[in-house]
């Protein structure tokens, strides 16, 4: 007995219909909420005579910014000030992601070391740094740079790398040759320097996040079946090659999804920079807000910046996750 393949019948009880109904209801609710908020805000602002609109971005900012990747001065327009802030956020977040990934990976691998001291240190590090609030860590590193480290004239040096109240100075490629930093009268001369504010944010982010990444990497490695290591050992692969060629590539499958959220956290946590005066996008938006009173606009810009960076991070990581996925039938 074969039923004729009838067209889909509409019924209150069909799964497809109910799914569609709930989606329509959800969209309507969200749409209404957004409309309500926007409408109310605009009405209130109009009632109180508050100016609105993004036209202020073209006017001169009128404030200086402590550090910038692009030429900037107080006469430049607001949009340029925001650009400086966005670049500063991206700079600390991207370098932070790179360094935290490296440290975290080493920490995670260290948890499986044959050496009990290495294992213990990695464990102690992880438990310490992930349990102290990141804001506290940021302030701690800022204190180290502004109070504990020696003045510019007598820096702590490790080879050509210098640490002082002027921040972290390192050799850099300047005008076709390596330039090595040396103490000058008021600041480091030659090479390149990262400001104490940048260093404090970076180190806060790196120490905090690498503890989490270490734990993620540890769990990823633990998820690789024991037989894989045995097979690699039986082939005579030394430990380092086993990790690089067999363990890590398989651990990546487990590591990447939670790693993605740590990357998003680094980007979002970089906004704590405002606490120590590193001019990230939040800090610039704050100043602009105070100067212009365009609260809705400034907050929208911050939200848009974080939305775009978070979405691009997530998209990139999803793409990478697909790439390392193991092929099955």
């Amino acid at each position: 007995m074969r039923r004729p393949s009838a067209r889909k019948r509409w019924s209150w009880r069909s799964q497809a219909f109910r799914g569609l109904l709930w989606q329509v209801v959800a969209v309507l609710l969200v749409g209404f909420a957004v409309w309500f908020l926007a409408h109310n805000t605009l009405e209130n602002m109009r009632a109180r005579g508050i100016q609105s609109g993004f036209d202020f971005l073209k006017g001169p900012a009128g404030f200086d910014i402590g550090e910038s990747l692009i030429p900037y001065d107080a006469l430049d327009p607001y949009w340029k000030a925001f650009l400086v802030g966005i670049l500063n956020t991206l700079r600390v977040a991207i370098i932070g992601i790179g360094v935290a990934t490296l440290f975290g990976t080493l920490l995670g691998i260290g948890r499986f070391s044959a050496n009990a001291i290495v294992r213990g240190l990695c464990y102690a590090y992880t438990e310490t740094f992930r349990n102290v609030p990141i804001l506290l860590q940021l302030l701690f590193w800022y204190l180290v740079f502004t109070e504990v480290l020696p003045p510019v004239a007598e820096p702590v040096s490790v080879g050509p790398f210098l640490l002082s109240k002027a921040g972290f100075s390192f050799p850099w490629w300047v005008e076709g040759r390596w330039s090595v930093p040396a103490p000058g009268a008021f600041s480091m001369e030659g090479g390149a320097s990262a400001t104490p504010e940048f260093m404090a944010v970076l180190m806060g982010l790196v120490f905090y996040t690498s503890a989490f990444i270490g734990e993620i990497v540890r769990a990823g490695i633990a998820a690789v079946p024991k037989g894989q290591v045995e097979a690699a050992s039986a082939l005579g692969l030394p430990r380092g090659l086993q990790v690089r060629k067999v363990i890590l590539p398989q651990a990546l499958r487990v590591i990447i999804p939670p790693l993605t959220s740590q990357y998003l956290n680094i980007t979002k946590n970089s906004s704590l920079a405002v606490a120590i005066g590193y001019p990230d996008v939040v800090s610039i938006a704050n100043t602009s807000l105070n100067n212009t009173g365009r609260a809705v606009e400034c907050i929208s810009i911050i939200m848009l910046v974080y939305l775009v960076t978070s979405l691009s991070t997530a998209l990139f990581m999803n793409w990478y996750n697909k790439r390392v996925a193991i092929q099955e039938r």
């Binding site: 037989g227 894989q228 045995e230 097979a231 082939l235 005579g236 060629k245 067999v246 398989q250 193991i326």
Partner: peptide
């Protein structure tokens, strides 16, 4: 000394050929 395991223990992230050349190339 070559070893063959009950659970095969092939490296799932490598092709058959890569499984076979890993040790000869790196070891």
């Amino acid at each position: 000394v070559g070893m063959v395991f009950q659970q095969f223990n092939l490296f799932p992230h490598m092709t058959v050929l890569e499984n076979l050349t890993l040790a000869p190339v790196y070891v």
